[in-house]
């Protein structure tokens, strides 16, 4: 009964889109990397750094959209470090990715302590405000549920469309997918696998950082340690769940956000009050594992994922 009441409230669906937004950015970022053949385990740390960088830029007076750009650029920079080590040098993507996560996370914390040595609680910024889309936001129920979001949420959905169009409708997308499936064919076309993969990892990492920045610039308006809290790892599971396809990954992110929004609301019901809150907080992680198990038999992994490409070597 309570579940029904929750599901018919517009604020629930608005929350689903809000919770999904950072996941969508980061999942699309990871998806680009993996379609080009590179597993990017730097995602968790890059999201932390993006959350910090965007927030700090706004705090320093740069404005919201320049803040998003700063976050993207910072992510791309960590992406460059990751790509340099994993693509031309072909080092273990597991080890480098975890190293980048450690490096990006600790860099964000170090910079935070340097920038704000005296504070006990982090300062707040003026975040993105909900943007009512004319006409559409006046539709009863749907308007409040879908069309009263912040600009970053709309951008998240636009990103899925752009990623899908580029991947499936442009020569660049074809080359990128080929780099992850059959790199020697790309090289035979006179294109550089190294350049494509490095570019993909940089752009993808930038998107992960924007996903992190959503947390500080649209959701919480402040930077906290451990605020990303495993979202990056969840996004890696979402890429698998979405079978490396943007549309399905979006669906996964929404489904996931739906369960997350539901568990938050269930905590406040009389039934939820009897269950330790930690059980509810476990839900996202357990769901991610279940999603991986469900897709394990069917997932079509890019053939050259995690296979370094060294020219002239067969």
């Amino acid at each position: 009964m309570e579940i029904f009441d929750i599901l018919v409230s517009a604020s629930f669906w608005a929350a689903v889109l809000r919770i999904a937004s950072p996941l969508i950015f980061a999942t699309m970022g990871e998806l680009i990397c993996e379609r080009a053949g590179v597993l990017n385990l730097g995602i968790e740390g890059i999201m932390v750094f993006g959350a910090f960088a965007g927030w700090m830029a706004v705090y320093a007076g740069l404005g919201l959209w320049p803040g998003v750009l700063v976050a993207f650029a910072s992510g791309a920079l960590f992406g460059l470090a990751h790509a340099t080590l994993t693509v031309p040098f072909g080092l273990s993507q597991h080890v480098v990715g975890l190293g980048v996560t450690l490096l990006a996370t600790s860099s964000a914390y170090y910079a935070y302590r340097l920038a704000l040595p005296e504070v006990t609680s982090p300062p707040r910024i003026e975040p993105f405000q909900p943007l009512d889309i004319p006409v559409l936001s006046d539709i009863p129920f749907l308007g409040e549920a879908l069309f009263s979001q912040t600009a970053l949420t709309y951008l998240a959905f636009a990103t899925v469309l752009i990623v899908a169009l580029v991947l499936y409708r442009t020569p660049l997308g074809l080359a990128l997918r080929a780099a992850g499936e059959n790199p020697s064919a790309v090289e035979a076309q006179g294109l550089s696998v190294t350049a494509i993969r490095m570019g993909a990892v940089m752009v993808g990492s930038g998107m992960m950082a924007v996903g992190g920045a959503f947390l500080t610039m649209s959701a919480f308006s402040s930077f906290f340690f451990e605020m990303v809290n495993g979202r990056g790892w969840i996004c890696i599971a979402l890429v698998v769940f979405g079978a490396w396809m943007p549309g399905k990954a979006l669906l996964g992110a929404l489904l996931f956000a739906g369960f997350d929004a539901l568990q938050i609301r269930m905590q406040q019901t009389p039934l939820g009050a009897d269950i330790p809150y930690q059980v509810f907080l476990m839900v996202p992680y357990v769901l991610s594992i279940l999603a991986l198990v469900a897709m394990s038999r069917r997932a079509e992994v890019p053939a050259a994922l995690m296979v370094p490409y060294n020219r002239g070597e067969r």
Partner: peptide, 30 residues
């Protein structure tokens, strides 16, 4: 899960870290 179903262990072991910490937190408050 890895051996039987081919589920990637990187993500599952990572996610277990968060689940375990919440489980411990639950016991320590209970």
């Amino acid at each position: 899960l890895k051996v039987r179903l081919g589920v990637d262990e990187v993500v599952t072991t990572l996610l277990f870290n968060f689940i375990m910490l919440l489980f411990i937190s639950m016991l320590l408050e209970g």
